[in-house]
Write a protein that binds this DNA or RNA. Structure first.
Ligand SMILES: [Mn+2]
Ligand SMILES: [Mn+2]
Ligand SMILES: [Zn+2]
Ligand SMILES: [Zn+2]
Lengths: 140, 140
DNA sequence: TTTGCGAATGATAATCGTTCTCATTTGCGA
DNA sequence: TCGCAAATGAGAACGATTATCATTCGCAAA
C-alpha cells in the first residue's frame, strides 16, 4: 500500500523508524493503537525503535494526515490510519472492544446545532461508552 | 443553595474543604473547572486547601453525583455542577468559550446506533470543536 | 561513489496532571 | 468531653508525554 514515496509526498523524509510505524498500522495488527501499543509491537517483532521516536512519529503522521488521533477516556491518545472517511466510536467499558460507526443523521444534527448557535464546526468527537454482547466479553 | 446536610445526604461528612469546593461551584465563578482552576481560585480567595484534597474531593463529588466530569481535549479533567439534565458541549477553538446544548434527535440516534450493534449505552461524550462568533473572540 | 550537513534518532531527563503515602488534624457520635 | 475512624495536606510517586542533546542517518551536491 504505502511506499517510501508516500512519506515524501507528505513532506517527511523516509526513515527506518517512520516506515516501521507506518507498516505496522498497515499490517492490520491493531487498528486503534496507543504509542505504547506501537512501541511494544515493534519491539516484539524485533524492530527496536525508541519510545520517544514513536511519540514523535505518531504526532508527525497525525499532522501529515496519515493518522487520526483520538482521546478516549483513560488519558492516553489512540491512533488509527486515516482512511479518508470520518466515523465515530462505540467503546465497550468491559472488554475495550471498539466498534466504528457513521450516522449521517447525527452528523447533520450536529451541523444544525452548531450553526444555529453561531458556530462553524472544525471538528468533533463522539464516543459512546457501552457494554457489548460479545461472547468473549467479561460482561458475560 | 447547598448546605452541609447536602453532603451528608450523599454519604460524605461535612468538612471545611468539601464545603469550600462546593460553594465555589455554586458561586458561579466558573462553570467548567479543572482541579487546578479550583485550587487556584480557592487560594486566591484566601481559602487554602491542599491540591491533593481538591483532587480527592472532586472525584468524591463526581461519584456522589454532585459534579459531572468531562474529558475535553488537552489531557485534564474538567468538572461542572450536576444539574440533573444531560447536555453536550461546543468549544470554541479560538477563545475557549464553551456553549452547552441538548439535541433530542442526536440522543435518539445514538441510542439507535448502539442498540442496532448490540451495545447497551452507559455513557457518551460529544464535543463539537468550532469557531464562535463572539465579538471578543480572536477569531475576529 | 564519496562527502557534508541538516534532519532524525534514542537514551534519558524533565514536565504535567493525577494518585499515593503517611503523619497529623478533624468531625461527630457515644 | 472523649475517642477514633475518617479526612487532610505535604510531598513522593506515577503514567503519559515532551524536551534535551550527543550521535547517527538520509540524501543531495560534487
Ligand atoms: Mn476508528
Ligand atoms: Mn456543561
Ligand atoms: Zn465487551
Ligand atoms: Zn471564540
Amino acid at each position: 500500500m504505502h511506499q517510501p514515496e508516500h512519506l515524501k509526498n507528505v513532506g517527511l523524509k523516509s526513515t527506518v523508524p517512520r516506515l516501521k510505524v507506518l507498516s505496522l498500522f498497515e499490517s492490520g495488527r491493531g487498528r486503534h493503537m496507543s504509542a505504547e501499543d506501537v512501541y511494544k509491537l515493534l519491539l516484539a517483532s524485533g524492530d527496536d525503535v525508541g519510545l520517544a521516536t514513536v511519540y514523535r512519529v505518531l504526532t508527525q503522521f497525525e499532522q501529515a494526515g496519515l493518522l487520526v488521533r483520538h482521546y478516549f477516556e483513560g488519558g492516553k491518545s489512540v491512533f488509527e490510519l486515516n482512511q479518508g472517511t470520518h466515523h465515530d466510536h462505540i467503546v465497550c467499558l468491559q472488554c475495550g472492544h471498539v466498534e466504528e460507526f457513521y450516522d449521517a443523521a447525527i452528523e447533520a444534527h450536529q451541523e444544525k446545532a452548531a450553526s444555529e448557535r453561531g458556530f462553524q464546526i472544525r471538528d468533533h468527537s463522539l464516543y459512546i461508552y457501552a457494554d457489548c454482547t460479545k461472547e468473549s466479553c467479561p460482561n458475560k
